[in-house]
Amino acid sequence: MEETKFTPQTWPNHAEQATAEGKNKFVGIWIFICSDIVLFASVFATYLSLRNKGPAGMEFTTQSLFELPLAFVMTMLLLTSSLTSVYAMYHMKNYNIKGVITWMAITVLLGLGFLGLEIYEFYHYVHIGFGYTQSAFSSAFFTLVGTHGLHVIIGLVWITCLIVRNAKRGLNLYNAPKFYAASIYWHFIDVVWVFIFTVVYLMGVLG
């Protein structure tokens, strides 16, 4: 089926919600996020009750383990990637596919940077003996931060697929909702991270 070709003048204001499928995707990604809120809440709640719990004589605690500079850099990377995806959506409104692709690519790069630091952090912890099976605390920590990391990976694969698929063919009412949904999902990853850096790292350092 051929797609309608648009120009900046004919591109609708809410292109992501111009078709019935677009409306469904818009509502659908939000409803999915609602269930993800409860998923993360369950892992968070478990982490809170297992924080610093381990076998007798466990040497690792949140205070001895976490380093704020690393958490700060990761936070800045992810927060900035949230802004860059807003830029991508701004260019989508103006029917500028180049802008969309460029800013989405920057988002992916920032996300990769975040992911690299997280892998480094995990590797470091495992290296000093704080492995996944070391204690209840370690299991809960890796599961919580790892679940977020998994969401980041899924987001990166998703956005990369969108970039590869749509870089050549430009924007239309079929792929606009896809870009929009991916960006909403990416913001949600950032929302979760806000709680992770506050509750896990900052409150962890406080003890």
């Binding site: 478990t46 009750s49 297992l50 719990k53 381990g54 076998p55 466990m58 996944y132 099976t133 204690s135 209840a136 605390f137 370690s138 299991s139 809960a140 599961t143």
Partner: peptide, 12 residues
């Protein structure tokens, strides 16, 4: 090998 529910490893 995780320890969420194993009380000897701090789980609950």
């Amino acid at each position: 090998g995780a320890n969420f529910f194993d009380h000897t490893m701090g789980g609950n």
